[in-house]
Simulated assay, not measured.
Amino acid sequence: MRKWPASDSDEIPTPELVAAWAALDTVASERVPLWAAHWLARGHDGEALRTLAGLNEADPREVNDILRAALANCDVTVPDSPGAAAHVAFIAFARLLADDRVTERWVLDRVGEVVSDSCYADSVLDLPLGQILALDDEWGTDWGRPEQELAIEIQDACKDQLAMSHTSA
């Protein structure tokens, strides 16, 4: 995920979120060493995590080779299904919107990336945020609903996604 949450943000994704991106094969490898350094500063530790934090961002293969072990140092495993990975990512997106840190359009764009990266898996499309994918066709057109109405639908889907996380926790 290269646009997390915005290109000028200093937001550091959690190890759980990066694990979800790894499952979807959408990790921004060049940013992972910096994130690993932040995870170390937040109290996670382990040989693989320290190694990852010290890697040069120019070699994505090295980053990807050690990422799973570094995530294990954070007591995190990579989700074993697209639906589980998307659920983690969608919760993060919904929280960002609820905190007014991103726009509805940003959420819609990121959902589209996750759905695409999952090869349109039913387990992803069945999630509350997975169901907003079709709104992309309407956004910014003269034939679709007004953007404000689409934004409300995205807000509602985010609320449903967050409610789903509370019932499955």
Results as ranks from 00 to 15, higher is better:
Arg2Trp: 02
Lys3Glu: 12
Trp4Tyr: 13
Ala6Pro: 00
Ala6Met: 01
Ser7Cys: 01
Ser9Ala: 11
Thr14Tyr: 01
Pro15Val: 02
Val18Asn: 05
Val18Thr: 12
Ala22Phe: 02
Ala22Trp: 01
Ala23Trp: 08
Leu24Ser: 10
Val27Ser: 10
Ser29Thr: 13
Glu30Thr: 06
Val32Gln: 06
Pro33Lys: 00
Trp35Ala: 11
Trp35Tyr: 12
Trp35Phe: 14
Ala37Arg: 14
Leu40Ser: 09
Ala41Pro: 00
Ala41Arg: 15
Arg42Ser: 07
Gly43Val: 13
Asp45Glu: 09
Glu47Ser: 03
Ala48Cys: 08
Leu49Asp: 00
Arg50Cys: 01
Thr51Trp: 07
Leu52Ile: 11
Leu52Arg: 04
Ala53Lys: 03
Glu57Leu: 10
Ala58His: 10
Ala58Arg: 12
Asp59Thr: 06
Asp59Leu: 03
Asp59Tyr: 04
Pro60Val: 11
Arg61Glu: 15
Asp65Lys: 02
Asp65Val: 06
Leu67Pro: 13
Ala69Trp: 02
Ala69Thr: 02
Ala70Leu: 06
Ala70Trp: 10
Asn73Tyr: 08
Cys74Gln: 00
Asp75Phe: 12
Thr77Tyr: 00
Thr77Gly: 01
Val78Ala: 01
Asp80Trp: 07
Pro82Phe: 14
Ala84Tyr: 04
Ala89Val: 15
Phe90Asp: 10
Phe93Ser: 08
Phe93Glu: 13
Leu96Thr: 02
Arg101Leu: 05
Thr103Ala: 02
Glu104Ala: 14
Glu104Met: 04
Arg105Gly: 02
Trp106Arg: 08
Val111Cys: 13
Val111Asn: 07
Gly112Glu: 01
Gly112Leu: 01
Gly112Ser: 02
Glu113Lys: 13
Glu113His: 12
Val114Ser: 03
Val114His: 05
Val114Gln: 04
Ser118Leu: 10
Asp122Val: 15
Ser123Gln: 11
Val124Asn: 05
Val124Gly: 02
Val124Thr: 13
Leu125Lys: 14
Leu125Tyr: 14
Asp126Met: 10
Leu129Pro: 00
Leu133Met: 10
Leu133Ser: 09
Ala134Glu: 12
Ala134Ile: 15
Trp139Ser: 07
Gly140Gln: 05
Gly140Arg: 03
Asp142Gly: 09
Trp143Leu: 11
Gly144Tyr: 03
Pro146Leu: 08
Glu147Lys: 06
Leu150Glu: 04
Ala151Pro: 03
Ala151Lys: 05
Ile152Thr: 11
Ile152His: 00
Ile154Cys: 07
Gln155Glu: 15
Ala157Cys: 04
Ala157Leu: 03
Lys159His: 12
Asp160Leu: 05
Gln161Leu: 02
Gln161Ala: 01
Gln161Glu: 07
Leu162Thr: 07
Ser165Met: 08
Thr167Lys: 03
Ser168Ile: 09
